[in-house]
């Protein structure tokens, strides 16, 4: 991991992602607006009937706020990693692959780019927190920051693993609808996961995104309940998920160079 062929190229690719993003204002907009519409409409629709288990009076707008943050990060990360497919098609990637750059540096640059954008967009959405009755307990801010970064990183990782082998953006959208969106839906983002033995409960427990949602939810001051893992565990699993997607992506990039 020398400076010349690892950190500098990674930093350049990271920086490029952000410059590109800021130049394409419609991307900023689209990654924010869809989750916002979800939040407002679902919040308005479900709030009257929403009764989480264990009592308590939580409005659905409040409940759905952390899930919306994760959705924003998922969308931003997806838009960011879809550029891998464009880069491949338009030739930019070839130029990167014939440069003496370590595979890990290509992955790191992309992951940091996606993470920065995802965290930035999520932070932007936080200005709406007062309308949701969501507060930011000071002592939990470090945990929230960590949760944002880890969730952004792992969402970018998921997107990268899907995007790298693809030749068309259509294929990516198919995987997004069939795999990525369901991962988000059964993460406790949209509804509390059922407690006890049930298929959804088990799927939720196996779903790494569940831990990201739980980490953000608890960093916003929610008390841990039976339907979600504790904050420490949530952060640890999300960090593990980050490491796993990063390692898998590095392997994928190193391998792709050898074969096709």
């Amino acid at each position: 991991m020398n400076d010349t062929y690892y950190w500098r190229p990674a930093a350049a690719l990271w920086h490029r992602d952000i410059v590109r993003f800021l130049r394409q204002r419609n991307r900023i907009f689209s990654a924010l607006v869809t989750p916002l519409v979800f939040w407002v409409l679902l919040g308005a629709g479900f709030s009257p009937s929403f009764r989480p288990e264990g009592g308590g009076k939580v409005s659905y707008l409040t409940y759905f706020f952390p899930g919306t943050l994760v959705l924003i990060m998922l969308f931003t990360a997806i838009f960011s990693t879809i550029s891998v497919i464009e880069d491949r098609r338009e030739g930019f990637l070839q130029g990167v692959l014939v440069a003496p750059v370590a595979p890990g540096a290509i992955v790191l640059g992309k992951f940091l780019g996606g993470t920065t954008l995802a965290v930035g967009q999520a932070a932007l959405f936080c200005v709406l927190a007062p309308f949701a009755g969501v507060t930011f307990p000071l002592h939990l801010l470090p945990a929230l920051a960590a949760a944002f970064v880890l969730v952004g990183f792992s969402m970018t990782g998921l997107g990268f693993l899907v995007a790298w082998p693809m030749d068309s953006t259509q294929g990516f959208h198919a995987i997004m609808n069939v795999v990525l969106m369901p991962l988000w839906m059964i993460s406790g983002a949209l509804f509390p996961l059922p407690v006890g033995n049930s298929v959804i409960g088990w799927l939720g427990a196996l779903n790494p995104v569940t831990y990201g949602v739980a980490a953000i939810r608890q960093s916003l001051g929610d008390q841990p309940t039976a339907d979600m893992p504790a904050l420490g565990l949530s952060l640890a699993v999300t960090a593990g998920f980050c490491a796993a997607t990063f390692a898998a992506s590095c392997l994928l990039v190193a391998r792709r160079r050898k074969v096709a």
């Binding site: 190229p9 490029r16 590109r20 440069a99």
Partner: peptide
Amino acid sequence: SLDKKLTVRENLAYGGALY
């Protein structure tokens, strides 16, 4: 292998960083 959304200078700067 250029990024068409970037300027010439940016392309060259990033290109150099890759080396």
